[in-house]
Design a protein around this nucleic acid. Structure first.
Lengths: 208, 208
DNA sequence: GTTTAAATTAAACAGTTGTTTAATTTTGTA
DNA sequence: TACAAAATTAAACAACTGTTTAATTTAAAC
């Protein structure tokens, strides 16, 4: 699998990322990409082979990026609760900073057929889950966290809450009276992040 | 706004719903719909005016359906905690039974331009939020629930968790060793539902 | 400067798209 | 039966789709 791209290729990939994220894969034509990137239509086929392969190249390019961004924070000198806070902050920031590709992955690769192509993405997910597991086990050993949590269901709550909120931007802007896009962006980074942190911590600590 | 459709129109709408949900709006051609519904291509334009208007008609047809499905359970003789459980069960079942249209709404109406078209959907959301608010306020008055919860962020956690899980079906089937689709479906109705209920209850009850 | 490979181009390709047309069939009504 | 409205059809429309071709320009190597 090719993972190195030249400047021109990266330029195309970045334009494609924006357009795919905005209008979807099917909703974006090669001609639009070419016009936006100020290149000839044939260049996409020349460099990537096909539109489908362009998408695949984009996924490869971006997910190897995400892999690099990963950190293992279980080694830090924090108590489990602080670690959960930090991990969620990491989650939120990673998605925020990589909106485009996350949106594309979310939309274009939600069907089963395509999903097995995403080995790199699954590696990222597995690594994240491992980090989370380590933190929770530590918290359980210290008697802070309850022992009957289903750990694999926690990332869906973190990611799902974030996605659902940001994907219904217009609705929540109106509901929460957030005038500008900056207000919204700011709300996500503060209140929404805190909400997710509180939710997960509550789930881990609460005794019924 | 037209809300009554004849048999033929409903037949087309149902076929369109399935295809839009499976392949997206842009990924579905009128000719495919026509073939699947065993009608002439021109009939879609004849009945609905355009492909775009067909989608709008589908949304209208389905969301008025959703509106009917709504119930107000605040009046029931249950304690707030049980009401939360019930409300979440209602949420989960409603989405489960209306997979198609929810998927379409999720995918096709996540962009800001289109979102204000969805007055009916917003009414459903507002009604749901009101139900939730009533239950939480009752719980707060009885001293069971904490008073610093941001109520509008709870539906995103409920819906988001559900969506993120079901939209990454292949990944979670593998992760949780769910062999068949029935196993998955069953997991959603039991374990995932319980997880969401526990999460929200913990958030409402937990004292930091 | 010549040669060779890489990059870039405009044009053409064949297929699909949503939509409209005009003709025909079906249906309901008087 | 006769008439009018509604439903249905095949065909055509122009615009757009992803991709390929063959010619031309640029760049690098010798």
């Amino acid at each position: 699998m090719k993972t190195d791209f030249n400047e021109k290729q990266i330029q195309i990939l970045l334009i494609a990322e924006t357009l795919f994220a905005e209008n979807g894969f099917e909703g974006t034509s090669i001609r639009t990409i070419a016009k936006e990137a100020d290149i000839n239509v044939a260049m996409v086929s020349y460099y990537f082979g096909s539109k489908e392969k362009l998408l695949e190249a984009l996924i490869v390019y971006r997910t190897s990026d995400l892999k690099i961004q990963m950190e293992n924070l279980s080694v830090e000198d924090l108590d489990p609760i602080e670690k959960i806070d930090k991990l969620i902050e990491l989650y939120v920031n990673r998605i925020r900073c990589n909106k485009g590709i996350y949106r594309i992955l979310h939309f274009e690769f939600s069907s089963e057929e395509k999903e097995d192509k995403l080995k790199v993405l699954n590696e990222v997910r597995d690594k994240n889950l491992k980090s989370l597991e380590a933190i929770i086990h530590e918290g359980q050993q210290k008697g802070i966290f309850r022992k009957d949590v289903v750990i694999p269901l926690i990332p869906p709550t973190i990611m799902g809450t974030f996605f659902h909120f940001t994907m219904n931007k217009a609705y929540f802007k109106k509901l929460l009276v957030l005038e500008t896009d900056e207000d919204f962006e700011n709300y996500v980074q503060t209140k929404l992040k805190t909400h997710i942190q509180q939710t997960i911590k509550a789930l881990l600590i609460y005794e019924s």
